[in-house]
């Protein structure tokens, strides 16, 4: 990796971490949801700062080219994340349905009680 490419990548990663910290501070993102993204930022920085780090690991693991390992890893991680998100979404959906049902039924009961009170 040339020194120019490396510094550009480091700069992008630093911007990424700054955006991350900013959104946590602005309360757009709770800490518990951001653990994965913080760790991924740190790993990226480490991998970029140590010379030949990625090349060394990919060689040890038997990849033909370092880029293969990077793409492979990212796709796996992306799959895992999307799957996780789908599960979370389904859970939230279920909670949402229950909420709507309960609120609607409560509303009905309150209206009935109010009517009874008026008629008295």
């Amino acid at each position: 990796m040339s020194i120019v490419l490396r510094s550009v990548l480091i700069a992008i990663t630093i911007i990424y971490i700054l955006i991350l910290i900013r959104s946590i501070n602005k309360k757009n993102l709770q800490i518990s949801f951001s653990v994965f993204w913080i760790i991924s930022g740190i790993i990226l920085i480490i991998a970029l700062l140590i010379p030949n780090f990625v090349e060394w690991i990919s060689h040890k693991l038997g990849f033909v080219a370092p880029s293969n390992m990077v793409f492979c890893l990212t796709i796996f991680i992306a799959f895992y994340l999307i799957f996780n998100m789908t599960i979370k979404l389904a859970q939230e959906h279920k909670k949402n349905v229950t909420l709507i049902q309960e609120v609607s039924m409560l509303k009905k009961r309150v209206e009935n009680l109010e009517k009874k009170k008026k008629s008295k």
Partner: peptide, 24 residues
């Protein structure tokens, strides 16, 4: 006599509301 769901839930969610009402 009716229950008005505050959002559209689809047939399943609507029918389940009825079962909840029957249960209560």
């Amino acid at each position: 006599k009716h229950i008005n769901l505050i959002h559209n839930l689809g047939i399943g969610g609507a029918v389940q509301t009825g079962y909840k009402y029957a249960y209560e």
